[in-house]
Nucleic acid binder design. Structure first.
Lengths: 64, 64
DNA sequence: AACAAATGCAATGTATATATTGCATAGGAG
DNA sequence: CTCCTATGCAATATATACATTGCATTTGTT
């Protein structure tokens, strides 16, 4: 459940709220996904990936 | 919402039920995902990808 | 055709992703 | 320190992913 959303978002100097607005969820949802405390749906993962200019694999394909 | 699960599963001559058992969901869930009628969670996408020997991008990164 | 295995489909129930609100806390800028 | 912005956190509500059961339909094989 470890992902690279937080790291990538900060790389882009984007705030949780900005990302949330772009992908049309709430700030809280982004926060929980970044902490790995839940398990987003595919559509949301795709939206996040596009908003951050990455692919699914780059953000969510865990190596561990 | 188009994905390559059905195509890839049939390539491997695997049945919906076999795939379902491997990823620990029901056959119906696999069927609906293949039809694009819903929106699986990330964990399930990862499990399916691993069961089919593909990555997230290969199965779920829609081009359209 | 006749049988069996695989898939589709529909109704109802449960678990959980996500929303909403509100407040607390952390961290940077002045 | 003070102010402000970003983030964390917790409670309650709603939407939806997924389970369960049962039956219909397709598809392949003989």
């Amino acid at each position: 459940m470890k992902n690279k959303v937080k790291f990538t978002r900060m790389e882009q100097k984007m705030t949780q709220e900005q990302l949330a607005r772009q992908v049309k969820v709430t700030r809280q949802t982004i926060g929980l996904i970044e902490k790995g405390e839940y398990n987003p749906t595919l559509q949301l993962c795709v939206a996040i990936a596009k908003a951050l200019g990455k692919t699914l694999d780059e953000l969510f394909w865990e190596v561990d």
